[in-house]
Simulated scan of single mutants.
Amino acid sequence: MSNTVFHPANERGHADHGWLDAHHSFSFAGYYDPEKIHFGALRVLNDDIVAGAMGFGKHPHDNMEIITIVLDGALEHQDSMGHKQALHPNEVQVMSAGSGITHSEYNHNRDKKVNLLQIWIIPNKRNVEPRYEQTVFDVAERVNTLQPLVSPIENSDAGLKIHQDAWIYRTSLENGKSVSHKLHSEKHGVYVFVINGSATVNGKTLSKKDALGISGTDKVEITATADSDVLLLEVPMYA
């Protein structure tokens, strides 16, 4: 029997710092909800808007898989591994913090906001050597199909690699079109986040920035009720 948890957009944690307008799907920083600590191995899904030339100064991370997806604008990244580059829409960045890294993230532009999703996934290996990947994904390859963005480092599936038995997909669904996803394991669940538009997920209607977590199922079907941009994350539920 499947279990579902619905996270409507207007019930996310919210913090407006002026330079940063942040929405948190799970407990983070000053936002705490005991019912929203994590969904399996998915620990953080932050929807951040950062003002021009502003950002997050140098700060440390360890033992976390950090995935960044820019939706609009450009984000400048610099880290202790020597990387310094900008991240644009349709690019995805993965950082395995492992035994420890420091990094900073700033809006690359002075005159335009940047909107990004930052996702943290709890790893299945601790204190690994830190690593970094970034690549561009072709928008045409996710129209009415699930485009793999992230997959486990242990297998040959497409996507950037992380130290967890987890997958992230993105799809641009045209109104009325559907995609289905068969889970890799009965011990996994899926968390579906609607970036834009509206869609039904296993019959449940989601609007922009709504999310639905489903566990105890082997398949998920998403049908667009308007042209939509949707993120699907499959994660172990035992983390």
Rank of each mutant, 00 (worst) to 15 (best):
T205R: 10
N115I: 09
G203A: 10
K182R: 15
L183C: 03
P236A: 02
N127Q: 10
G100H: 05
R12I: 03
D48Q: 11
A211V: 05
S151I: 02
Y32H: 14
G73K: 06
F137S: 02
Q93M: 14
Y169E: 04
H14W: 11
K209D: 06
H77G: 04
T4F: 06
H17R: 15
I122S: 02
A97L: 13
T171I: 07
H38N: 12
Q93W: 13
K177M: 12
E174T: 11
E221H: 04
W120Q: 06
V179I: 13
N124H: 15
A158M: 03
N10W: 10
L160E: 03
I69R: 00
R110P: 12
H188I: 01
N175Q: 13
H59A: 04
V192E: 01
P152W: 05
F39I: 02
V136M: 06
E133A: 14
V92K: 01
S172T: 04
P89N: 12
W19I: 03
L160A: 00
K58V: 09
H24E: 05
D62N: 14
G73R: 02
N115G: 11
D33T: 08
L212H: 01
I121D: 00
K84I: 00
H103D: 00
L71Q: 13
A29H: 10
L71N: 14
L146I: 02
K84P: 00
E186H: 12
Y31M: 11
Y169W: 10
V150F: 11
I122P: 00
N107W: 02
S207I: 09
E186Y: 13
S156Q: 07
L149T: 02
N115F: 11
Q118E: 14
R110W: 12
I162F: 07
N144R: 12
I222G: 00
I67P: 03
Q78Y: 03
S198W: 06
S96F: 12
G216P: 04
K177R: 12
R142D: 08
S151P: 03
L212C: 07
V235M: 15
S104C: 01
N144D: 15
D138R: 15
P123E: 02
A9N: 15
G57W: 00
I49N: 09
D21L: 01
